[in-house]
Design a protein around this nucleic acid. Structure first.
Lengths: 145, 145
DNA sequence: TCTTATATTGTAATATTTATAATTAGTTTA
DNA sequence: TAAACTAATTATAAATATTACAATATAAGA
């Protein structure tokens, strides 16, 4: 499964004329296998062993490339640095305000909202983002003990 | 209208035991009257004339206080600094990807989505955020000329 | 008015992200 | 396969946003 995703991602890079370097390969692989939603620094640190000379700029550059190609989504919350999510199927994120855990949440989508917004504002709507905030079960339990 | 909002905001500060300083008064007033969604620096610059000695830290401190009290919402997009929005009625934002204009968009809310997310993930859901992205009519027209 | 806790100021520090120039290395074509 | 071309990486510096801290000033209640 992960192998297929990686292969498709690499193909999609090739189609767009983006060169496939070992660093890009590794970053993509890490993003696909990562169950968390890492920051640029997380990725940098995780690949330090494999690429001792890799620059942090390379991570940022390639995350931007991946985002432009549509392979990766950038998640921005107020407090700290951006997080990055390999784009698979359409899903939203539920975020714990206590421990910052991010859980995927599949939902049919909000096409009607986009359509209404387009109608009301006159915008050509391209996409939307939504996140849901709350407290995860673990933190809820911790709080009551 | 704006006067009433300001008065209510100041009352709400008083109730919470937050001191009302001239700087806080001015920041709130600016946020309420502002049709845009200013950054901390926008606010700082706008009040420079009135408060030549005000520190940028004061702006940040007070925006955090206002957010904690629930008077102000912090909007974080990837690229640059946070933007701040005085909380009035429930509305979403439609953002132009070409000129960064932000337009308010009133919508009944997405309670069902919150409920489903709570059910599926086991979270205690507190709130959500959503933004819609696209191209505003002005930029669309500019593009076709 | 006096007191006290809180807010502001000014500055420095931190953190994140981007810019730049030199070097390195994919990819294409012969 | 080798050469050439272009894009990517590295290393570093800079830009930007935000927070921390200590000293001073001030809002609000007694």
């Amino acid at each position: 499964m992960a192998q297929i995703q990686l292969k498709e991602a690499l193909d999609s890079l090739k189609d767009t004329g983006v060169r496939i370097t070992p660093q890009r390969h590794a970053i993509l692989e890490y993003l696909i296998n990562s169950m968390t939603h890492p920051t640029a620094d997380d990725i940098y640190k995780a690949l330090e062993g494999k690429f001792p000379n890799m620059s942090v700029a390379t991570v940022y550059n390639n995350l931007r490339v991946f985002r432009e190609v549509g392979l990766v989504k950038e998640l921005t919350y107020g407090d700290s640095s951006s997080r990055f999510d390999f784009v698979t199927t359409h899903h939203y994120h539920v975020i714990c305000e206590s421990c910052d855990k991010i859980v995927d949440f599949h939902y049919p989508g909000l096409d009607e909202v986009e359509q209404l917004a387009a109608h009301v504002t006159g915008f050509k709507v391209s996409h939307h983002r939504m996140e849901i905030y709350g407290t995860c079960p673990e933190c809820t339990n911790k709080g009551t003990h």
